[in-house]
Write a protein that binds this DNA or RNA. Structure first.
Lengths: 236, 236
DNA sequence: TTAGTTAAAGTCATCTTGACCAAAACTAAT
DNA sequence: ATTAGTTTTGGTCAAGATGACTTTAACTAA
């Protein structure tokens, strides 16, 4: 990695740069099986360092926006979408994350519902990747994604977050598919149903999903906002 | 709150300031009951804003230290102690946390073992307070402490963190006292023992604590480092 | 009408949890 | 020395949660 003498001097004197990045998760059907899998949008670096490599969407923090707003803006700019869930992940501040200057990144992670908009916004420098097939990313972004994945799986297993991948109405099989995609293992349909229906945040509607090939499943609704952040002020 | 025109202009142009603060927890015997209670060291503001009020120890981030090192330094400078546990809490970046300038605080929380050193370092501008009797703090520090307390209780209930309040050898009653102090409720000694002894990280020694007034309790040892942070790289 | 598939409900053994009981081991008071 | 008091330690029991599994209901496609 090339580093000029000017850069070294700059590094000593300038204050650490503050940046916001966002790990964005969406489920979309795999090409092969049709089952949902985890995808992440990345942007291509168009300048040094790491020019040409893929990186997490991000940018500087402007003065008029909160940390969360900045993350939301990242999301909007790269995917055209609004987050259905957004939470702070971690502040990464290692000394050598960026070769030329000291930069502290406050990283958020988000869930979005995949729509046409997301696909439409793909371009030469913005592309969606399967979360388990990212390749080598710029900076320490591989480690960041790993940590975000760990948090996502944790929150899914313990919290009630799966519904933010889905629309307002959903079947229990769809919820199970979310769990299976994120946790990457099969779950017993009967036991899963028992667990989900026993949580008070899940409300059964009188509606059924018609048009399927088999017995029409009942539609459910999620009631209850999440977010235990100091920002998102609400429940544990 | 007084704000000069110069400050407003400054606020628009200058980059957000980055600061590190630390919420430090220790247990020490209550004056009355003698049972352990949660205490937090605070420093008095010696300049505006919030001059005279108590605040979390903190300061700017220097170029040669990682975020965690900066938090460690806070801890050392205010208490003279080294942390037995240290973890990132949250990055607070609300627009109006500080009246004069935009400041983003990356806050850590720590556990220390109370020794003579900690008391010795008390002074006019550094004092320990009971966590449940803090009064009004500077900035948004009351909210930060509340969140830190929430995390501490969570980690205690689910993770294996209690031992960092204690020395290398301890009795199960001592561990229970830690839980009772932090969670602020009584626990059944027999059931508590069953839970703790069933975790593989707890090792029973052949030693017993002598000199007590009653049946001498067996001494135990904690084996296994914690920390699931990207920083502390280790186990969940 | 039947075969195939998913939805939904239920059974059963195992494990965990909270409430409670009792013996063991020590000190302090009588 | 004996007894009372306290804590440690081991145990039981019922209620609830969990995982493996079976059965019936409801629909489509052949």
């Amino acid at each position: 990695m090339y580093t000029s003498a000017a850069n070294v001097a700059e590094r000593r004197t300038a204050p650490p740069t503050l940046a916001i990045s966002t790990v964005i998760f969406a489920l979309r059907p795999s090409e092969k099986s049709g089952r949902p899998t985890l995808w992440i949008p990345l942007v291509r670096r168009i300048r040094e360092p790491f020019k040409g490599l893929w990186a997490l969407p991000g940018g500087p923090l402007t003065h008029s926006e909160s940390l969360q707003d900045a993350a939301s803006r990242n999301l909007q700019e790269t995917t055209g979408l609004a987050p259905s869930y957004l939470e702070q992940l971690y502040a990464f501040g290692g000394l050598h994350r960026s070769p030329s200057q000291r930069v502290v990144s406050i990283v958020y992670w988000a869930l979005v519902q995949p729509t046409e908009a997301a696909l439409a916004d793909e371009s030469e420098n913005v592309r969606w990747f399967r979360a388990d097939r990212l390749g080598e990313l710029a900076f320490d972004h591989n480690a960041i994604v790993d940590y975000a994945l760990w948090r996502l799986r944790n929150k899914l297993a313990y919290g009630s977050i799966a519904y933010h991948f889905l629309g307002e109405y959903f079947t229990l099989a769809q919820v199970r598919e979310v769990y299976e995609a994120v946790l990457d293992r099969q779950l017993d349909p009967a036991n899963f149903r028992r667990q989900i229906t026993s949580t008070p945040e899940i409300e059964e509607t009188g509606e059924y999903l018609q048009g399927g090939k088999h017995r029409p499943p009942r539609l459910y609704r999620f009631t209850g906002r999440p977010g235990l952040d100091p920002d998102n002020r609400s429940t544990p």
